[in-house]
């Protein structure tokens, strides 16, 4: 065989393998979503949204888990997002060239992919062990710790994209720096910052590990943030590993709900950020 044909063949094999790799990756996505829909839809009914988590062997739904997840996610984002936005603001505006920014950026990127179970341990030793009992509020704080790095990163990136002349124009009008940021910077970066918050919501909505020993779980309806609180992922964890058939069915249904909520959020976030960049 001529060397040219051999090179052609090697190229065909290598590029063929790249096609296979992509098909392999996409195959998992399709397979996971298909199984989720297949197993989850069977258990989908009105009861899921109106009934409490049942004891084994009786009918029930996931209402307390859904409510707990929503409450802790909203609270976690309400604590974490403003903190992250302010930190991102410092890094992009006041301290753009400072050493502090470099360090914070580096540490923040590490926190972004740090194991979430460690965050659970951190909140356990700081809050739960002090208070002496598991509580919804400590679950929310654990989620907030996970929200911060996501929001810091996107806020900084988005503010850095705001063109300098906009800032200069604001400064030329005599606006103090804070007003320039609040009235011009935030407004210009709004879509991007909202994207970041949505991504953060998507991230923490499915988090299980940090809730296991902060919020624990609760089989009953509880609006008390000082008491253990159910959440969808923890209920899925508990129910999926149980031997009871109806619990497993609820776990699949919960998994379906949470996956599609999370995917819808991240697709919305992606669309929002594209809207901004195409403008």
């Amino acid at each position: 065989m001529s060397p040219y044909a051999a090179r052609r063949r090697r190229n065909a094999i290598a590029t063929g393998l790249c096609w296979v790799a992509t098909a392999f990756g996409l195959g998992w996505l399709v397979l996971i979503l298909a199984v989720l829909v297949w197993e989850g839809v069977r258990g989908l009914s009105f009861d899921v949204f109106t009934q409490m988590t049942p004891p084994p062997g009786s009918n029930g739904g996931l209402l307390n888990a859904i409510a707990g997840s929503l409450a802790m996610t909203i609270l976690g984002v309400a604590i974490g997002a403003p903190l992250g936005m302010l930190a991102g603001t410092y890094m992009a505006e006041y301290g753009r060239y400072s050493k502090l920014t470099l360090i914070v950026r580096f540490i923040n990127d590490i926190l972004l992919s740090a194991p979430s179970i460690v965050v659970g341990l951190f909140i356990y030793t700081v809050f739960v062990a002090r208070m002496g009992h598991f509580s919804g509020i400590s679950g929310a704080v654990a989620l907030a710790v996970l929200v911060v790095p996501v929001v810091v990163r996107t806020t900084e990136d988005m503010l850095l994209l705001v063109p300098g002349p906009l800032r200069e124009a604001a400064a030329a009008l005599g606006l103090p720096r804070s007003h320039m940021i609040l009235r011009v910077g935030y407004r210009a970066a709004k879509a991007g910052i909202i994207t970041g918050v949505l991504l953060a919501v998507a991230r923490v909505l499915g988090e299980t590990a940090p809730l296991l020993f902060t919020a624990l779980n609760n089989q009953f309806w509880s609006a008390n943030l000082d008491a253990p609180m159910a959440s969808l992922p923890v209920v899925i964890f508990q129910f999926a590993l149980s031997p009871y058939k109806d619990w497993r069915q609820l776990a699949w249904t919960g998994a379906l709900l949470i996956t599609f909520t999370v995917l819808a959020l991240s697709i919305t976030a992606r669309a929002l950020s594209r809207l901004r960049t195409s403008k």
Binding site: G206, P233, I236, F237, V262
Partner: peptide
């Protein structure tokens, strides 16, 4: 990457 890890677990 966006699918929560609990879903990978149950699956």
């Amino acid at each position: 990457a966006g699918i929560p890890s609990i879903i990978y677990g149950i699956w």
